[in-house]
Computed example of a mutant assay.
Amino acid sequence: MSPDIFYVEDDPDFAFIMQYAVKEVKEDLTVGIVEDGNTAIAHLQRFAEEKHRPKLILLDLNLPGISGLDVLKRIKEIPFFKYVPVILFSTSDDPKDVKSSLEIGANAFMTKPNGYNNLIVCMQSLYDFWFNQNRSIN
């Protein structure tokens, strides 16, 4: 079974904090976290084979091995994930990164907030839009 949110994040501390922030937003939301692009692609291929889709994919830009942009390209090559929103979630706020991400097919690009409370507010906004307001065939 795939998680509600599939998160690719190489910083274990931030990933740990993210899990708590998501639970503060909605207790029963599940988050699956992997630390690099190769592992992310392997998990996504397995999800596709098993016909399980996450409802949202959060993708860090700067990953070891395969970059977040390369993972995004691979996600977009898998027809099963065509309608799954992919959000680049990075410390970068470089307009070139934003442009590249959107050109490849990201649904949005967000800069990671500073501080736990700001992260909760950010996750609440993501949840409100992508899980409640956005109409998806997912």
Score class of each variant (00 low, 15 high):
11 D>R: 11
13 D>Q: 12
74 R>E: 14
66 I>N: 01
16 F>R: 15
43 H>I: 10
75 I>N: 11
9 E>C: 05
23 K>A: 12
91 T>Y: 10
64 P>H: 07
26 K>L: 06
25 V>G: 12
28 D>H: 04
92 S>M: 13
47 F>H: 04
46 R>S: 14
28 D>V: 04
84 V>I: 12
52 H>T: 02
93 D>I: 13
16 F>H: 09
63 L>A: 02
34 V>N: 04
89 F>K: 08
52 H>F: 09
64 P>E: 13
57 I>R: 05
60 D>Y: 04
7 Y>K: 03
78 I>F: 07
43 H>K: 13
25 V>E: 09
43 H>G: 06
22 V>S: 11
67 S>T: 15
85 P>K: 08
75 I>C: 10
74 R>C: 06
49 E>T: 13
20 Y>S: 09
62 N>G: 06
19 Q>N: 14
88 L>P: 04
57 I>Y: 06
12 P>D: 15
50 E>T: 13
21 A>M: 07
61 L>D: 03
44 L>H: 05
49 E>M: 09
23 K>R: 12
85 P>L: 11
80 F>P: 01
25 V>W: 02
94 D>L: 15
11 D>Y: 04
54 P>T: 00
79 P>N: 11
24 E>T: 06
53 R>L: 14
48 A>W: 00
16 F>A: 10
7 Y>L: 14
41 I>D: 04
66 I>H: 00
11 D>Q: 13
23 K>H: 03
93 D>Y: 14
20 Y>A: 12
47 F>D: 09
76 K>T: 08
13 D>S: 08
55 K>D: 15
76 K>A: 10
38 N>Y: 14
77 E>A: 11
10 D>R: 01
39 T>M: 06
84 V>R: 03
26 K>T: 03
30 T>G: 08
26 K>A: 13
44 L>D: 13
18 M>W: 08
9 E>T: 12
75 I>Q: 12
15 A>L: 06
65 G>D: 07
78 I>A: 01
49 E>Q: 14
90 S>L: 15
78 I>P: 01
63 L>T: 02
57 I>A: 05
56 L>A: 05
47 F>W: 05
27 E>A: 06
82 K>I: 04
91 T>P: 10
93 D>C: 13
25 V>M: 04
10 D>C: 11
66 I>F: 01
76 K>Q: 13
53 R>G: 09
21 A>N: 05
75 I>W: 03
58 L>F: 04
64 P>G: 05
